[in-house]
Structures are given as C-alpha cells and as structure tokens.
Amino acid sequence: MSIYNIDVNTIKGEQQTLAPYKGKVMLIVNTATKCGFATQFKGLQKLHDTYSKQGFAVLGFPSSQFANQELSDDSKVAEACEINFGVSFPLYAKIDVNGSTAHPLFQHLTNEARGFLGSKSIKWNFTKFLVDQNGKVLKRFGSKDTPEQIEKHIQKLVRVPTHA
C-alpha cells in the first residue's frame, strides 16, 4: 500500500489522501496540545517554515491515546495549536495511533519504521516519522527527539535551491 492512497480527514473534516505530498519530504507527528512535549509545536512550525519551499511539510495528527492529553473537539485542537503555538502546518482530525482502532496511516507508519527493540506500538505523544519524497518511511523518532535534533535528517532530503 502506498502512503499516498491512505484516506485522512483534515482538522476541518474534509476527506483527502496524502497524494498532494507526492514528491515532498514529510514529518508525520502524533500530537497532543496538553502534553508536556507540546513545546515541540514551535520547533515543528519552524522546520515547516524553514523547509517548505524546498519540498518539506510537517503533518500533525492529534491523538488522545496517551493520558487523554488532547482536547475533545477538532476545532478546539486547531484553535489551541494556532493561538498557543503559532501552528500553521497541516493538522488532521483526531485519531488513534495504536491498537485495533489505529488509523491506517499509523498502522502503515509503525509497520515500516519500528520503535525501540522492534516495537510497533507508539509509546507517547510526539512520535515522529520521516518520509522521503517517494513515500518511503525512513526513520522513526521518539517523543524526546526534538525538531532541532531531527533537522539534520531533513536537510539531507530536501531540495537545496540552486544558485545562479
């Protein structure tokens, strides 16, 4: 299955696939606005702003599966992300990332990039998956891996503008 064919719902409830991201590097993150790692939103936004013109996008997928640290309503999630953290990168509808109710996107991501000791399950909020321009899941980063630590991996993948 191609990552680009998986159906996702935007934070506004519109169904789409990830096809618009073909040819782009993606950092897909399970987020939670009430999590202690929510300070990473600012770093994620900075990555998105810095590299979007080179074919990079951060995609946020809110989840309440870890200590119920996400707001109950998608519109409240969007508002909190924008007001509290300045988020303008794409956010999607709240989903499950683990277990029998895990969203197909996260089933795909966890099958392709295993965690510690080969684990498929996501341990906490702000687990990040780096996907290349061809839709290949390259690497999984844990909650403690900051956007600043991940930046060097993104730099290796994005298109560097050529100078005349």
Rank of each mutant, 00 (worst) to 15 (best):
I83L: 15
L44N: 05
F66G: 01
Q133D: 04
S119D: 03
K24G: 04
N111A: 13
F141D: 02
F66T: 02
N125D: 03
G115Y: 01
V25S: 04
D7T: 15
V131R: 03
L18G: 11
G118C: 02
E79D: 14
Q16I: 13
T110I: 05
T110Y: 03
I6Q: 05
A80F: 14
G60N: 08
N5A: 13
K120N: 10
N68E: 13
L44I: 09
T39F: 13
S52I: 10
V97K: 05
E112C: 09
K128L: 04
E82G: 04
N125P: 01
S88D: 14
I150D: 07
R159K: 14
D145H: 06
E70V: 04
S63I: 02
F106G: 01
D73C: 12
Q45I: 11
S2W: 07
L47D: 11
I150S: 07
P147S: 05
L117F: 15
F61K: 06
I6E: 06
V8A: 10
T50P: 02
G23T: 06
K120Y: 02
K12N: 15
A93R: 14
S119E: 12
E79H: 11
Y21E: 09
Q40H: 14
A38Y: 08
S63C: 15
I150R: 05
I95A: 07
R159E: 12
S63Q: 03
A113C: 08
D74K: 10
I83N: 12
H48R: 06
M1G: 14
Q65C: 01
N125F: 03
T110D: 04
S64K: 12
F116A: 07
Q40T: 10
F89N: 09
K139E: 12
L157H: 07
L138S: 01
P104I: 01
V131Q: 03
G55L: 08
L71S: 14
N68V: 08
L27W: 04
S121P: 01
T146N: 03
N9D: 15
F37R: 03
K156Y: 00
C81W: 03
T31P: 07
N84A: 13
A93F: 07
K42E: 14
V29Y: 13
N30D: 09
F56L: 06
Y21W: 15
K156S: 14
K156L: 13
G43Q: 10
K128I: 01
S72Y: 02
F61Y: 12
L130P: 04
P62T: 06
A102T: 01
S143Q: 04
W124A: 01
G23W: 06
L59I: 11
A102H: 02
R114E: 10
G13C: 14
G23P: 07
R140P: 00
T110V: 11
E151A: 15
Q45A: 11
